[in-house]
Simulated assay, not measured.
Amino acid sequence: MKKKVITLFALFVSFLSFSQNDRLENREKIQALKVAYITEQLDLSTSEAEKFWPIYNTFEEEQHRLRQSSHDKREDINFDTLTESESQKLLDEMIAINKERISMYDTYILNLRKVLPAKKIILLKKVENEFKQKMFEEYRKRKGTKSRNRP
């Protein structure tokens, strides 16, 4: 199993080498690697994977939407002219977004419980963190290599 993971990341590195200029393409490749990594690490059966991925992808899209919405609201803030009442309204919106995030996560877990054993759901968070860590390490390694090679 470890050989598969190593092979997977070697493929990732080679994929990124061929198309550094297209962020969307790279994002899709990373997503494909993430799918493969999670599927392998959770040892998902075909049946489990068919039920799991729609739930996972829907949750990820909803999380992205919330993050984007929150980011957009913060970008529009003019701190020089922000009044106390506008600040109160923004805080209320932040609370509402956090409540929505918690509600979405609860629904996500309940939906996952219908298709995966509890142990795999718990393992999922660990596997996601490992994948992110590997991606950060690869990014740091690539960024370090690039900056050293620059004139």
Rank of each mutant, 00 (worst) to 15 (best):
T39Q: 11
P54N: 12
S87I: 00
S19H: 09
L44A: 07
L16F: 12
D72G: 01
D92C: 02
T7Q: 12
K89L: 12
L90N: 03
E28N: 15
F15V: 07
A49S: 15
R27A: 14
A36F: 10
Q88K: 14
A96T: 13
L33Y: 08
L16N: 15
V5W: 02
I95S: 09
Q20P: 12
R23V: 14
T83S: 15
R67N: 05
T46S: 10
E25Y: 11
N57W: 03
S85W: 00
A49N: 06
R67C: 00
A96L: 11
Q20E: 07
F15D: 15
I95K: 15
T83W: 02
P54H: 11
A36L: 09
S70R: 15
F52W: 07
F18D: 01
K73L: 13
P54M: 04
E84I: 01
Q68I: 02
E25Q: 14
I77E: 05
S87G: 13
E62H: 10
Q31F: 10
N57F: 03
S45W: 04
I6S: 07
I77G: 10
F9M: 10
H64V: 01
E61W: 01
D43W: 01
T83L: 07
L91S: 10
F52V: 07
D80F: 09
A96G: 07
F9N: 05
S19N: 15
N78Y: 04
S69I: 06
F15L: 13
S17G: 12
F18W: 11
E60D: 04
F59S: 08
N57A: 09
D22C: 05
A36D: 12
I30D: 01
L90G: 01
D76M: 08
V13M: 06
R67T: 01
I6E: 13
L91M: 14
S47Q: 13
D22S: 08
S47Y: 00
E50R: 08
R23D: 05
I6K: 09
R74G: 02
L11D: 13
N78H: 12
I38W: 03
L90M: 09
I97A: 13
K29T: 09
R74H: 12
T39E: 03
K29P: 02
A10Y: 02
T39A: 08
E86W: 01
H64L: 10
T58Y: 06
E93Y: 05
S85K: 11
H71E: 09
E50C: 00
V5G: 02
I38M: 05
L33K: 01
K89H: 10
N26W: 00
R67Y: 03
D76Q: 14
E50Q: 14
H64I: 02
E86M: 05
I38A: 06
E61H: 08
E50H: 03
F59Q: 12
K34H: 09
Q41L: 05
L8V: 06
N21D: 12
K73S: 13
N26G: 03
L8W: 03
L8M: 14
L66F: 04
A49T: 04
